[in-house]
Design a protein around this nucleic acid. Structure first.
Lengths: 147, 147, 147, 147
DNA sequence: TTTT
DNA sequence: TTTT
């Protein structure tokens, strides 16, 4: 029957979100997210960082592009999706991405406030939990995103 | 600082677990897991299946190899890990796997009972939730926490 | 700033969902859900069952009342909410409930099929993952539900 | 058969952890945790806070008492447990608690550093993810904790 | 009050 | 390559 495919991440953005507008007018945003874990190896502190490819669609992509920047701490909930694509040498490759279903900004409020010189309007109390209210279907997710 | 990297899956095994014993005596098991989602596309029922590479270490690998078989429904909790390897043509490739941290068998009890002709001893009331009680990691997390 | 409040359960319904229609026409359903855990105590198998109060609103309540029955295995995702109410003796009491945000039916398909004698129409391929598409606000959740 | 009972929270401590040492030498810590959600109601920003009773056992309790303080932002993973107790008037009451299974400190590193006047030694790079490595059995959880 |  |  059916199943569950859920990912929960808390980490920092490695870059600003990259936004693309597909032909049908659909917005897609993506960015790398780092989750770090520290452990002891032979008495020394070692940090291991895992990088995740985050993809957001439509409204979620738009909010992300407005509020998330490189370095910010964010909680992301989504699902795993592995897709194939061809690289420049026409070699078939696979990427596993996390398709975000909602996210919440963590950390200091000041981390999400605009700098005083910016002109884009950001509400004082920005909505920090955003749900993707659109049904994500495969026609939108066919994902020939050259990530 | 730190982060969260958590995956929650409920799905069916695509194959029996494949077990390997590494040089140091460490056991590793792996299997593909399918999570399916159904949705409506133009009034038709469409099923989309996502395949996940599950990896289990040590005690968890041993329990998995005993109790899990192709077709079984299982709840798996773990973390994402992307690693690189070289294929036969020495081309560098990447795979994203789910390193299991615990699992619980779901479905009918009969689904997990041994066939009457099998001789391997399986306790009548097999523990169905298994935690990896062994420190996972290459002697890394051995946890002499000088916290 | 903001936070995360998430509950993930897989368990069996202890009773059929109880459905109520509030004054504004809003539908609410609720049922108890059991999650069991088995462990060894002094060499004996012990089962410990935890009971959860599940509450569903609007569309989610309606779907639940159609497809879920006592004994069924279900995956539920939601959030914790503790609310106070007065019992018959006017004593203030507290209950903690799980407000469902989506659910997925698990187990055999036959477990969710209608009996042949029933006349209520249930689509052959019922959608098994349902998202609550309505924004749940406090005006609807003020919860004077005498649970 | 078995089930899943999992809670994931990100929130701020409402008080410093309260630590108790039970007769058998077992350590228990507890504290309230707030998770806030903001939403729009009639065009106004409304914040709704939910309070959770967090309980930690043994090693996890000890680490929590060392590193967590009122106001800190923390990720907590655990399970729900409802237990009954008698209040001073001998009235039977119920509380639902989250029994933590591991936690991770979030927020700025400086938030977890000791104040310069404190003498307790805390390593610069404190382990932030702690697993409860002890098997939690009911004899230890019988929970006559007058929370 | 569920399930195995 | 699973399941319904």
């Amino acid at each position: 029957m059916s199943g569950i495919n859920k990912v929960i991440l808390v980490g920092h953005l490695g870059k600003d979100p990259e936004v693309r507008h597909l032909d049908g007018g659909v917005t897609v945003a993506s960015f790398p997210l780092a989750t770090s874990e520290t452990y002891n190896k032979d008495g020394k502190r070692v940090e291991q960082t895992e990088w995740h490819n985050i993809v957001l669609w439509r409204g979620l992509a738009e909010v992300a592009s407005k509020y998330l920047q490189k370095g910010k701490l964010v909680y992301i909930e989504g699902k795993l999706r592995t897709r194939s694509f061809e690289d420049k040498e026409k070699v078939k490759k696979y990427v596993t991405e996390i398709v975000a279903e909602n996210f919440t900004m963590l950390g200091r409020k000041s981390d999400f406030e605009q700098s005083p010189t910016t002109t884009t309007s950001i509400p004082q109390n920005a909505e920090t939990k955003i749900h993707d209210e659109f049904t994500i279907g495969p026609s939108d997710e066919n994902g020939d995103l050259p990530f």
